[in-house]
Computed example of a mutant assay.
Amino acid sequence: MSLHARDVTWTAQGRPIVDGITVEIAPGGLTGVLGPNGSGKSTFLRLLAGLLRPQGGAVLLDGHDLGRLPRRDVARRLAVAAQEVSTDVELTVLDVVLLGRIPHNRRMTGADGLARARRALRRCGVADLEHRRWPTLSGGERQRVSIARALAQEPTELLLDEPTNHLDIAHQLALLDLLAAIPATVVTVLHDLNLAAQYCDHLLLLHKGRLVATGPPGRVLTEETVERVYGVRTEITRSPTGRPALRFLPRAARTA
């Protein structure tokens, strides 16, 4: 067992944002969290990461309540790459990535830490940005550097909130290739259903704060479920590997 949400609930202003979700995250694979805007995806990811405390239920890491574990122990295992990161940090890119080494060594700047940080930069395709100042980066560059910082942490669980945001299609594919290959349990919020179908081993589909479907892409992404959750009709075919490929029907076709 790796991460397990047990009847997790979180509300804001009396409205349930995450409403009684129970699910075990498949260890060692790439799990995608899907759902329309406002379905609770980012909040659920923050609960899994321990950035928010559940108001009901619990998040378990290897069977232990995440909120009761020592923060340093959690940080050595679990890394998070947020959707948006402040642009006001006056650090170089290398300094930002070295922050991922703090749970392992507070000194950060030893030879081993530098080597691991530079390796993470190379894996994310941003080694040439090492000496750039953080505020000078584009949104896509910041996104990849943030993921490099998370990889430098060398987590066993890696949680990402819309990591393909700000990236062009080539960098989206390169990033998802990387996430699918790393030896960790990866949970990522995604908007693109076809990318999720192509890369993820397992999907969680949220709607209005509830988990409405879970399983491999071919079981979760059906024409009926997509229409019920997203309000759009699709035609779904299967690739030679059995993964679904979605074609969204134009409005004229939906009302014909």
Rank of each mutant, 00 (worst) to 15 (best):
K208M: 14
P183T: 04
L175R: 08
N194D: 12
C200A: 12
V189L: 00
L190K: 05
A181F: 06
Q198E: 14
T188G: 04
L203N: 09
Y199L: 09
L206K: 11
T214I: 02
V189G: 00
A180H: 12
D177Q: 12
H191Q: 09
P183L: 08
V189E: 00
H207T: 02
L190G: 02
Q172N: 05
L179E: 07
D192S: 03
V186C: 09
A197D: 03
D201C: 07
R210A: 15
L176V: 05
A170C: 08
V189K: 00
A196E: 01
L190R: 02
D201Q: 08
A196P: 00
K208R: 14
A197T: 01
L203H: 02
H207K: 14
L193I: 10
P183Y: 06
L179S: 12
A180R: 15
L211A: 10
L193W: 04
I182Q: 04
L211F: 13
V187N: 09
A196K: 04
L204I: 05
K208Y: 01
T188M: 10
L211W: 14
T185W: 02
G215M: 05
D192L: 09
Q198N: 05
V187A: 06
D192M: 09
H202Y: 12
L190C: 02
A180T: 02
N194Q: 10
T214M: 11
